[in-house]
Amino acid sequence: MIDLIIRAWPLLVTGTIATMGLGLASYLLSLPIGLLVAVSRLYGSRLGRLLSRVFVSFMCGTPLLVQVLLLYYGLPQMGVVLPAVPTVIAAFALHSGAFIGEDLRGAIDSVDRGQWDAGAALGAKPHLVLLLVVLPQALRAAVPTLGTRFIGAMKETSLASIVTVVELTRVAEKVGSSSFRYLEMFVIAAGIYWLLSFAIARLQALLESRLRLQHRAAAPPNPHPVMEAGA
């Protein structure tokens, strides 16, 4: 297997970079989509809530592969011709955005109602309370699920190979086809995906640890430490 890695190294590097680019771009686009979905479902008009529910239901209830093919083959029939890479990024972002929207909706809804009341008492408008007070707390609570979504976005890039995008899975398929060593190439590809996922998980753990430390530092001191220790 070592000789195969050495021989395919340039292609593996190129494919891994493409995978990371697709995953990062789609994830960054999915965050504002998810926030818009969450806000629409919680505070939007009746029409906005209906549209966001339908969007989430469709995106969460249909396979991502079907969504990729729907955009890739459907948009040209509507007169919109896009290269394969922007098309798959859009499909991945819409798909992840629906799930992230549900994650953020739950996180925003979990913030204590007293935060809204405190903001209103200070004369802040609702959208400022949401942006400056509620949303930072909700994002802190949503870090674990958002990190998991990022790992999922990185793995889902493998579906881009279906529409001829040359990323890691496509590289493994091409090298396996030319060398007739499919098993080894897909084991190598799986190992690279695992390393990427492991790196993201470690970054997530570090971020969670830092946020916990900041939260403890910002928390007021306990006025009754003896009573707490006795409890």
Rank of each mutant, 00 (worst) to 15 (best):
residue 1 M to H: 12
residue 2 I to V: 12
residue 2 I to D: 08
residue 3 D to N: 15
residue 4 L to C: 09
residue 6 I to Q: 00
residue 10 P to T: 09
residue 23 G to V: 08
residue 26 S to L: 03
residue 29 L to H: 04
residue 31 L to P: 09
residue 34 G to C: 09
residue 39 V to Y: 05
residue 43 Y to W: 15
residue 47 L to V: 14
residue 52 S to M: 12
residue 55 F to Q: 08
residue 55 F to V: 11
residue 56 V to I: 11
residue 60 C to H: 11
residue 61 G to R: 05
residue 61 G to A: 09
residue 65 L to N: 06
residue 66 V to I: 14
residue 70 L to S: 10
residue 72 Y to M: 03
residue 73 Y to M: 11
residue 76 P to I: 13
residue 76 P to N: 04
residue 81 V to H: 10
residue 83 P to D: 15
residue 98 A to T: 13
residue 99 F to H: 04
residue 100 I to S: 00
residue 104 L to C: 09
residue 105 R to M: 07
residue 107 A to N: 06
residue 113 R to W: 12
residue 118 A to Y: 14
residue 119 G to A: 09
residue 124 A to S: 05
residue 129 V to A: 02
residue 134 V to D: 01
residue 135 L to G: 04
residue 135 L to R: 03
residue 139 L to H: 04
residue 140 R to G: 11
residue 142 A to M: 06
residue 143 V to R: 04
residue 146 L to E: 01
residue 146 L to Y: 01
residue 147 G to C: 08
residue 148 T to H: 07
residue 148 T to M: 01
residue 152 G to Y: 01
residue 155 K to D: 06
residue 157 T to S: 05
residue 158 S to T: 09
residue 159 L to E: 00
residue 165 V to T: 03
residue 166 V to I: 14
residue 167 E to K: 00
residue 172 A to W: 05
residue 173 E to F: 03
residue 176 G to M: 06
residue 176 G to P: 10
residue 178 S to C: 05
residue 179 S to Q: 13
residue 184 E to H: 04
residue 196 L to V: 15
residue 198 F to R: 10
residue 202 R to I: 14
residue 204 Q to T: 15
residue 207 L to C: 13
residue 207 L to D: 09
residue 208 E to A: 06
residue 209 S to D: 12
residue 211 L to P: 05
residue 213 L to R: 15
residue 214 Q to C: 04
residue 216 R to D: 09
residue 219 A to K: 09
residue 222 N to K: 00
residue 223 P to T: 09
residue 225 P to R: 04
